[in-house]
Design a protein around this nucleic acid. Structure first.
Length: 438
RNA sequence: GGAGAAAUGGCCGAGUGGUCGAAGGCGCGCGCCUGGAAAGUGCGUAUACUCCAAAAGAGUAUCAAGGGUUCGAAUCCCUUUUUCUCCGCCA
């Protein structure tokens, strides 16, 4: 007998038991869920009823087959083949009574199941209570601002500085691939490597284990962390083998724990990974894509944590503090935002963004995004843990950038430019091997 | 890329159409034995979902994944994936 397992994406139970709460929370994200939620609850109710009926039919069929099987086994051993044949035919007849009905029900259940599933994946994660209301980035809440914004007399933007000092060749990237794929050269290349090493060391020091994951993932992984199906167009798709280029290390690293039941003693899981990230960024334009501001390929060091549900917000605070420390080491003026409902991502419950000030462009640039996904990803991933009492419980996943390189480089170049050249922050010098770019 | 072999529970490993959700062993848990331990010995040891107020109990599904044949599939057939051996290619 075959019955497809229901793929629990989100907790249907949560939706059923807290219908109004779910709907009202999702309005914070500007999402009108009432219709979908009601459909889910209704369809799921029907599905469950049919499912119970179906299982009862299967039980009958199994009973018939098992009884017959037991008798046939004995008869055959005794060499009574004719009697065995009779038992066989009786079983076939008896079973036929249930067959038609169960096949019909089976189709029906599969259909209902798909209906529920199709609607379930449309629902974003519920935002945390502290997520401010608001439609766009303007409504994000600045929770902290720190550092001094340098006063430049004749500040050049980073793309000019990059050309002046021979750090980045955007033209060459255009030739090799296309816009958004820069070529780093000389001290520019070394600076990349230095930042990556510094960031990784900082994370390792704080108990994160370094991982080097694949840069391509399959569809299951894309689904597990929520890139699929709703963000399909943002990933590069390798058609010949049906792989996707990772948009962030979060995807392969978190998916290490897809379909895993972790022992409670193994928690929290803390991983860090450096990878290039590939994003199609369809629909971007203007000053947002100038220079390093928005690229199709960029470098990022990521941190991922997996914790027990009751500890996830403590872990989120810890990660924010951790990233803040790193930004301070770079001596960049920064601010921390709590994203409002309209700006927070589909799968996040609470997100803090870090922005550094880019002096020559006179604007804030996002360099890190630290989020708690609560059980949203874990549900998709089927990521759970065993309690000391041997109960299986869902986990929470979190991740953050620590840090994304391009805009850090942009800010470093712009903010630290002097007549003599670009001064490196002290903490970075052991990694670059030079203290000034001139 | 070609040819062959294989995939079984936490691990090892038996099982080629029927009393099989799966022998046996290891590991693990709880007892007994012991002054204590080891050895020995007894019992128990997968996951998900559902029914039930809950417990007890029961049902369904799962032997790489998906599909098929059959009254009945770990076992037969098809597809896919992965692993091993040989050949080819290669950093």
């Amino acid at each position: 007998m075959r019955l497809k397992k229901i793929r629990i994406m989100l907790n249907i139970k949560t939706i059923e038991n807290n219908r109004d709460y779910v709907v009202s929370r999702l309005t914070v994200k500007g999402f009108d869920a009432a219709g979908i939620v009601d459909e889910i609850i209704e369809t799921e109710g029907t599905r469950r009823k049919k499912q119970i009926e179906l299982e009862a039919l299967f039980a009958e069929q199994n009973r018939v087959a098992k009884d017959a099987g037991a008798r046939i086994g004995i008869l055959k051993k005794e060499g009574k083949h004719e009697e065995a044949e009779t038992v066989k035919q009786n079983a076939a007849e008896e079973s036929a009574k249930f067959k038609t009905k169960s096949e019909e029900l089976e189709t029906e259940v599969a259909c209902l199941e798909k209906q529920v599933y199709d609607r379930l994946i449309l629902l974003p994660n519920l935002p945390h209570e502290s997520v401010p209301a608001g439609k766009s980035a303007e409504n994000n809440l600045v929770v902290k601002e720190s550092g001094t914004i340098p006063e430049l007399n004749s500040g050049q933007p980073h793309w000019e500085l990059a050309a002046k000092y021979g750090l980045i060749d955007f033209e060459a990237g255009n030739k090799l691939t296309g816009a958004g794929f820069p070529v780093y050269t000389g001290k520019g290349a070394k600076l990349q490597r230095a930042l990556i090493s510094m960031f990784l060391d900082h994370n390792i020091e704080k108990g994160y284990t370094e991982v080097q994951p694949p840069l391509m993932i399959n569809a299951d992984s894309g689904f597990g962390t929520g890139q699929l199906p709703d963000k399909e167009g943002q990933m590069y798709h390798v058609v010949a083998d049906d792989f996707y280029l990772i948009p962030t290390a979060e995807v392969p690293v978190t998916n290490l724990y897809r379909n895993v039941i972790v022992a409670e003693s193994g928690l929290p899981v803390k991983l860090t990974a450096y990878t290039p990230c590939f994003r199609r960024e369809a629909g971007s334009y203007g000053k947002d894509v100038r220079g390093l501001n928005r690229l199709h390929q960029f470098d990022k060091v990521e941190i991922v944590q997996i914790t027990r549900p009751e500890l996830s917000y403590g872990a989120l605070d810890g990660m924010v503090a951790h990233v803040e420390e790193l930004v301070r080491k770079l001596e960049l003026p920064y601010r921390i935002l709590r994203l409002c409902g309209g700006d927070i991502s589909f799968h996040s419950a609470l997100t803090y963004d870090f922005e550094v000030y880019s002096a020559a462009q006179a604007r804030w640039l996002e360099v890190s995004s630290v989020s708690n996904f609560e059980s949203f990803q874990a549900n998709r991933l089927k990521l759970r843990y065993k309690t000391a009492q041997k109960k299986t419980e869902i986990l929470h996943t979190l991740n953050g950038s620590s840090l994304a390189l391009p805009r850090i480089v942009a800010a470093l170049l712009e903010n630290n430019q002097t007549d003599r050249g670009i001064i490196m922050p002290e903490a970075l010098v052991p990694y670059t091997g030079f203290d000034i770019i001139s």
